[in-house]
């Protein structure tokens, strides 16, 4: 059954007061999440993700050089990798959200379905959130496994949820918006991959990034930097979450900007 037919059927049978839109959003979200989590392709992605986390964990066990790291540093690294993988997932799924529908020829039926464009976007965001939630849950055993001393493990999980979630969603929304504008999965994905590579550079470069003026500017505007700096403060420096409000504000500002961009581009979609 095509998504258009599914939505139409749901809108005809829904018992809710505003049945068409609400149940259609839910259906789109379920379909999107199902494609990522339940389908073969989705499972392959999940398998690859846990493979990366497993590989990193095993490297930490096997490498004597890495044993110079503090345990909190290891937890911080793991949390950073989870955010990067989450952003990658959101980027791929977001690139496919509208551009993929366009390339497959299913965008017009979707836009003709009895659901608003905001509803379609909300459904796609819902699917991404479910996928991120699954990824987040799968990362918890890894955080527990490498956090052997238990130092700030709760802080890591809280930081990942609080700062990782908006960063991941922002990447997903930007990808959706760009995909809606470009109408090409490949072009959207390539562009967003370059952006992600740049944004996630603090994971590789670390605090030395802030030593130059350009680096500190980049650090100040990059949502990824804000997320990893907040994690650094919470996990390694044992600072409270309240002290990270500036990072949260910056990340939320990016999230709203990304949402506004995705809404604008979705509204401009032509049938």
């Amino acid at each position: 059954m095509t998504i258009h037919a599914t939505i139409k059927a749901a809108s005809e049978t829904s018992p809710f007061r505003s049945p068409e839109n609400m149940s259609a959003i839910g259906l789109i979200a379920r379909k999107e999440a199902g494609e990522i989590i339940v389908s073969h392709r989705g499972r392959a992605w999940l398998l690859a993700m846990v493979g990366v986390l497993s590989g990193f964990s095993l490297l930490l066990v096997g490498s004597t050089e890495l044993s110079l790291l503090d345990n909190a540093q290891v937890v911080y690294d793991m949390a950073g990798i989870v955010i990067a993988l989450g952003a990658l997932l959101a980027l791929v799924v977001g690139s496919d959200a509208f551009a993929g529908e366009h390339e497959r020829g299913s965008l017009t039926p979707l836009l003709l379905a009895p659901v608003s464009r905001h509803g379609i976007l909300a459904g796609k965001i819902g699917g991404q959130m479910v996928a991120w939630a699954v990824m987040f849950i799968l990362s918890l055993p890894y955080l527990w496994a490498v956090g052997s001393t238990g130092q700030n493990l709760f802080g890591a999980i809280l930081g990942l949820a609080l700062f990782g979630t908006p960063v991941v969603l922002a990447f997903g929304l930007f990808s959706m918006g760009l995909g809606a504008r470009l109408g090409s999965v490949r072009a959207t994905m390539m562009t967003m991959l370059v952006v992600l590579l740049l944004a996630a550079s603090p994971l590789l470069i670390g605090p030395s990034l802030r030593q130059s003026t350009l680096g500190s500017w980049f650090d100040a505007v990059n949502p990824f930097s804000h997320a990893v700096n907040a994690l650094d403060a919470m996990i390694i420096d044992s600072l409270g979450v309240a002290a990270q409000s500036i990072h949260l504000v910056a990340i939320l500002a990016w999230l709203f900007f990304a949402l506004a961009y995705a809404v604008r581009q979705t509204n401009r979609l032509v049938r």
Partner: peptide
Amino acid sequence: PVVESSRVLPVALGLP
């Protein structure tokens, strides 16, 4: 050891 293999191995091998 910064990470304990007894904790990491079951997760790293079991979950995939």
